[in-house]
């Protein structure tokens, strides 16, 4: 594997991890908002129990992506930074408001708490929609050049059907993934009422997320034929992804586990669904190559200095090795410890 390919794979992996973690994070905020108005339920508490310790860690990944982008592909960053100034700035503003109000909703007086949960939940829903715009922007047709500077063609972007396919996919995936993970989280917490609700949400939304994914493929034929052809060459990944979608969906109806009053094996469903997204992302990523921004920036043209890349690569290995015990402790404390999960 060439250095460029290693770099772009690593970067795409970060994007994938953030996409999953952020979907769950933003989605959980949204569910906290939805269930705020239903009486006598523990749903919002479950969502917040997941969110409180995890949002900071999730947020680090957005910085990891930006730093990975700058350090691996400074050429691409310069081009994208110019084009994305406006959408990314708006996303940053929403992110700031969302994170601050999320934290403040825990600390504020109860009369403001509702308002804060509503604002942080609602801004959280817009974020995945804004962030996913990077995908249709980088596969071509919406970047214009005038006086030597690139700029985003908003008209083209907003009238292209594929943009809306991506938007639908981002929104529905966020809700699907988060309801699925929260179903698992409440299953482990043995909060059966919350589990039934979140399972129902996941079952309801899953098929729509799939339809949105298919719509992306359909519109891509028209809007980025080069990529559609590449994707056909990598169709094994996409088909395998579809198989895992059905596996994940089916185990939600599996006979109940001993000791559980409701059917379904949410842990297996989460694993299968994450694999589903991973396979699809691999196929999508492979089909996007060698372009980072079509047709101007490739992984070769935007690449960083070789010596810098080797130093960075070494720092990644050392960094993640050093942090592994921290991640393990974090997992043990918040995702597995029954004392934390089952408190009332």
């Amino acid at each position: 594997m060439s250095d460029q390919l290693i770099a772009v794979s690593l970067l795409w992996l970060f994007v994938f991890v953030y996409a999953i973690a952020a979907s769950v994070d933003f989605g959980a905020g949204f569910w906290a908002l939805v269930y705020l108005y239903r009486k006598e339920n523990n749903m919002t508490t479950i969502a917040n129990r997941y969110l409180s310790p995890s949002w900071e860690v999730t947020n680090v990944f957005i910085v990891l992506i930006v730093v990975g982008m700058v350090s691996f592909f400074p050429g691409a960053t310069a081009a994208l930074g110019t084009v994305l100034l406006l959408p990314v700035s708006i996303a940053l503003l929403l992110l700031a408001v969302r994170s601050a109000f999320l934290v403040y909703s825990h600390a504020a007086e109860s009369k403001y708490r509702r308002a804060l949960i509503i604002i942080s939940g609602a801004t959280g829903v817009f974020l995945p929609l804004l962030l996913i715009l990077v995908l249709p922007i980088t596969y071509g047709g919406v970047i214009g050049v005038s006086e030597g500077t690139e700029h985003l063609l908003w008209g083209e972007l907003l009238t292209s059907p594929s943009t809306y396919a991506y938007l639908a996919f981002a929104g529905l995936s966020t809700l699907f993934l988060s309801s699925l993970l929260l179903a698992d989280y409440s299953h482990v917490s043995e909060d059966w009422r919350a589990y039934r609700e979140y399972r129902k949400d996941a079952i309801l939304i899953g098929p729509f997320a799939l339809i949105a994914a298919i719509l992306i493929l359909v519109t891509m034929q028209e809007d980025a034929p080069w990529m559609y052809e590449n994707l056909l060459a990598h169709k094994g990944w996409i088909l395998a992804s579809g198989v895992f979608y059905f596996l994940g969906y089916l185990v939600l109806f599996a006979p109940k586990k001993a000791g559980a009053p409701s059917p379904g094996r949410p842990r297996l469903a989460v694993i299968a669904t994450v694999l589903q997204y991973l396979l699809a992302a691999t196929g999508y990523g492979a089909a996007h190559l060698p372009y980072i921004v079509y047709p101007t920036v490739t992984i070769e043209s935007g690449f960083t200095d070789e010596t810098t890349f080797h130093a960075l690569f070494a720092s990644y290995i050392v960094g993640f090795a050093v942090l592994t015990p921290g991640f393990w402790l974090f997992w043990r404390m918040f995702m597995r410890d029954k004392k934390y999960l089952r408190q009332k």
């Binding site: 900071e56 700058v70 350090s71 691996f72 960053t77 810098t308 960075l312 942090l323």
Partner: peptide
């Protein structure tokens, strides 16, 4: 220039940041 020359501190900073967040 940062990406090609002085990317290391940004990169290592992420790990420090992760350590702090965890």
């Amino acid at each position: 220039v940062v990406g090609k020359v002085i990317a290391l501190p940004f990169q290592i900073e992420i790990f420090a940041f992760l350590l702090e967040a965890l």
